[in-house]
């Protein structure tokens, strides 16, 4: 279980918030919203693997 995922998520989050600010200032609120959503979907794919690992491990460990 590598810890780099935390830093990856934080990096994507910071990038998204910066992009959001820039696009807001440029008057394109829709694109800002879309970039936020895109960032969320990317991070969701990463996180889903971790969640499925957790639940399969718990099931296997506790013989659920």
């Amino acid at each position: 279980m590598d810890i780099s995922i935390i830093f990856k998520i934080a990096a994507v989050g910071i990038l998204i918030s910066v992009l959001n600010q820039v696009l807001d200032r440029a008057g394109r609120e829709e694109q800002a919203m879309l970039t936020t959503l895109a960032g969320l979907v990317v991070v969701l794919f990463w996180v889903i693997h971790y969640i499925s690992d957790l639940f399969t491990e718990v099931q296997q460990l506790f013989q659920l």
Partner: peptide, 29 residues
Amino acid sequence: CAVIFIAVLDKHKEFGVYLRIVTGVIMFF
């Protein structure tokens, strides 16, 4: 580390939720 990153990403709550989930999973492992 996770707490600090959650504080940084305070404006976007969704990333905070992701960070909490991933931290919980890593600590479990």
